[in-house]
């Protein structure tokens, strides 16, 4: 035991390391730049907003660094610098501070920031925003695997999805890196394993059924699994303790809900990806889930 908030956040940073490495490996200085912008902007925003509320900023709990990194990893390397800065400011300001700071927020701060810029700067963050031709990073000239599939019906090989040499948000491309970090988090019990288990199980079931109904499709359940932000979302975004339920049953419901929503969005909506909206939606349901899953006290009926 002896776990503190600080050691929890430190473990999250360690777990994010594989993704950061993969991002830098595949996207070179685009990744370095985006991650740095987001982390620095989150730290600055946290310091600024805490001071505005008349408190002394406590950056030592590392939570702002974690939010910054997750935010950066969920953005494309192509996004211009001001997108990162604005997303960070919205994450910390609207995502966290208006609710009263760490522990009080309802929505995952990084996702709030990302949702905001996705709507405000649709051009930079819509499917086409990911594609940057004439860059010295080759994979960035391709469409992201999910978009490519949705719009053109092309299918990326499972091996690329697994290793990560595809286009996409910085942290999501390498399934391998997500799994490494995610399993570490669960083993350290910093993340509750029930949440990713719920997400993965429900994706597996729905993806499997969709797969069976349309056997000719090249895009199999395995592609759903390894492609896009599914693993990154399941292990790193959905498991944010503050915005997920308290009890084990609640965590299962939450995870399964996210998995179901992701698959519905991916299969039936106009968007190629659904992780962000799925997490935000389930965040909104968390207080209700908590209320419905009050455990039966020992000896109670």
């Amino acid at each position: 035991m002896g776990m503190t908030i600080r050691t929890m956040m430190r473990d999250v940073l360690i777990a994010l390391a594989p993704m950061v490495c993969a991002a830098v490996y595949f996207f070179h200085w685009f990744a370095v730049k985006q991650l740095l912008i987001c982390v620095v902007a989150c730290l600055a925003a946290e310091a600024l907003f805490t001071r505005m509320r008349g408190r002394k900023p406590d950056l030592g709990d590392l939570s702002a660094v974690v939010t910054g990194l997750i935010l950066g990893l969920s953005l494309p390397g192509t996004a211009p610098w001001y997108v990162g800065v604005i997303a960070a400011a919205v994450s910390m300001g609207i995502g966290k501070m208006v609710f009263g700071g760490l522990g009080m927020n309802i929505f995952n701060p990084a996702m709030v920031g990302r949702a905001f810029v996705m709507i405000a700067f649709a051009g930079s963050l819509a499917a086409s925003g990911y594609v940057a031709i004439h860059m010295d990073v080759d994979i960035m000239s391709r469409a992201t695997p999910l978009t490519a599939h949705k719009q053109m019906g092309t299918v990326v090989s499972l091996q690329s999805l697994f290793l990560g040499n595809t286009n996409g948000s910085l942290g999501e491309t390498s399934a391998l890196a997500c799994l490494l970090g995610g399993v570490f988090l669960c083993v350290r019990r910093v993340a509750s394993w029930e949440i990713p288990a719920g997400v993965l199980a429900s994706t597996l079931v729905i993806g499997g059924v969709a797969n069976l109904m349309d056997l000719s499709s090249q895009w199999t359940v395995a592609h759903h699994f390894l492609g896009g932000a599914l693993l990154f979302g399941a292990f790193f975004i959905a498991t944010d303790p503050v915005t997920s339920p308290l009890t084990s049953t609640g965590k299962w419901i939450f995870g399964i809900g996210i998995g179901v929503l992701i698959m519905l969005l991916r299969l039936f909506s106009g968007y190629p990806e659904g992780v962000m909206f799925a997490v935000l939606l389930m965040n909104a349901l968390t207080p209700l889930i908590n209320r419905l899953t009050i455990p039966r006290p020992f000896g109670g009926i």
Partner: peptide, 13 residues
Amino acid sequence: VDQSVCVRCGRCV
């Protein structure tokens, strides 16, 4: 442990 705020991690539960 320095007292901070509940992060709703559910460990107590």
